Computed example of a mutant assay.
Amino acid sequence: MSTETTAPQRITVGDVEVVRVVEWLGPFAPATDLVPQSAPQMWQDGGAHLAPDHYDPARGLAVMALQTWVVRSAGLTVLVDTGVGSGRDRPASPHFHRREGDLLGDLTRAGIPAQDVDVVVNTHLHADHVGGNTTGADGEWAPAFPNARYLVPAADDHHFGPAGGYGGNRSPDDRLLYEDSIAPVHRAGQTRLWDGTLRIDAHLTLESVPGHTPGSGVLRIASRGERAVFAGDVLHSPVQILNPSCNSCFCMDPVLAAAGRRKVLERAADERELVIPAHFAGPGAVRVRRRGGAFGFDPAA
Score class of each variant (00 low, 15 high):
Asp106His: 13
Arg267Met: 12
Leu265Ile: 06
Asp253Trp: 03
Val229Lys: 02
Val19Cys: 08
Trp194Tyr: 05
Gly131Asn: 01
Met252Gly: 04
Arg20Cys: 07
Ala188Lys: 03
Ile221Met: 04
Thr82Cys: 10
Arg88Asn: 10
Trp141Asp: 02
Asp174His: 14
Val130Trp: 03
Met252Lys: 11
Gly189Tyr: 00
Val80Phe: 13
Ala58Pro: 07
Phe250Ser: 03
Pro184Lys: 06
Ala188Gln: 03
Ser2Cys: 07
Asn243Tyr: 10
Gln9Ile: 13
Tyr55Cys: 09
Ala281Phe: 02
Gly168Leu: 14
Ala29Arg: 15
Arg261Gly: 03
Val275Tyr: 03
Arg227Phe: 01
Ala48Lys: 13
Thr77Ile: 08
Gly47Met: 01
Gly101Glu: 08
Val35Tyr: 01
Leu235Arg: 05
Ala31Asn: 10
Ser93Pro: 08
Asp118Pro: 06
Ala202Leu: 09
Thr82Trp: 11
Ser223Asp: 03
Val152Glu: 00
Val63Gly: 03
Leu151Arg: 09
Trp194Ala: 05
Thr6Val: 15
Pro172Lys: 08
Glu4Ser: 15
Val264Arg: 00
Gly284Val: 08
Asp174Arg: 14
Ile276Arg: 01
Pro30Lys: 11
Ala285Lys: 06
Leu34Asn: 04
Thr191Ala: 14
Gly105His: 04
Phe295Gly: 07
Leu66Glu: 11
Gly46Phe: 00
Gly136Phe: 01
Tyr150Phe: 09
Gln67Tyr: 06
Asp116Tyr: 10
Gly168Cys: 12
Ala74Tyr: 04
Ala258Cys: 05
Val239Leu: 02
Gly14Pro: 02
Pro40Cys: 11
Ala202Tyr: 05
Ser245Thr: 14
Asp195Arg: 13
Pro57Trp: 06
Ala155Met: 10
Ala258Tyr: 03
Asp201Leu: 05
His212Met: 07
Leu104Ile: 11
Arg59Thr: 15
Gly164Thr: 02
Asp156Tyr: 03
Gly131Tyr: 00
Ile241Thr: 04
Ala62Glu: 07
Leu79Arg: 07
His95Glu: 11
Ala294Met: 06
Tyr150Leu: 10
Ser237His: 06
Tyr150Met: 10
Glu4Ile: 15
Pro91Asp: 00
Ala148Gly: 05
Ala300Lys: 07
Val185Trp: 00
Ala58Leu: 12
Pro244Glu: 06
Leu256Asn: 13
His212Thr: 14
Gly47Leu: 05
Pro238Thr: 09
Gly85Lys: 10
